[in-house]
């Protein structure tokens, strides 16, 4: 899947995107209908908490239909599928999540920055290493010393905070 190689056909998107919006709206309406009802003496002449989100989603469904009609008149431009760097970056968010939860947030940031530099084409390892160590360290010290914000406990912060 190289960038610029394949592209999504516009005909598909004329229906897929509005359908997704309508599907999302239906799910939200369903979830809204599951919300508790408030006693009338609290709500008074106003509306139940479920009403407003339902009204919003009905408007969104109308707009999705308008979008589908608009796409039929003027089909959207072809979307070039993203390359390795984009999907790889999103995957790195997952790596960051796992490392933050199970190891340490600051180490997770350093590791993600390092891997992102390499993924985005940085071939000079010392440069990638310097960026990945200096950036989180500088920002961490700034937030810790100046803004006095405590970071979540982990491998590095346990050592740092004692």
């Amino acid at each position: 899947m190289r960038p610029g190689g394949r592209a999504v056909r516009p005909a598909m998107r004329t229906l897929v995107l509005p359908a997704l919006i309508i599907g999302f709206s239906v799910v939200v309406i369903w979830a809204s209908l599951q919300l508790d009802l408030s006693p009338p003496m609290i709500v008074g002449e106003s509306m139940q908490p479920r009403v407003f989100p339902i009204v919003l989603m009905i408007i969104n469904m109308g707009l999705a239909v308008a979008l589908a009609l608009q796409y039929r008149i003027a089909p959207p431009k072809q979307i070039r599928l993203e390359g390795r760097s984009t999907w790889g970056t999103i995957a790195l968010f997952g790596v960051f999540f796992v490392l933050t939860v199970y190891v340490d947030m600051i180490i997770a940031i350093a590791a993600t920055v390092f891997l992102m530099c390499l993924l985005w084409g940085e071939r000079r390892l010392p440069v990638a290493l310097a960026v990945s160590v200096l950036t989180p360290t500088t920002v961490f010290l700034l937030f810790d010393k100046v803004l006095q914000i405590r970071f979540p406990r982990g491998l590095f912060t346990n050592w740092y905070y004692g």
Partner: peptide
Amino acid sequence: SKILWPMVFAL
């Protein structure tokens, strides 16, 4: 970009 945007991620 390969240097700048990873730094933006950290920030």
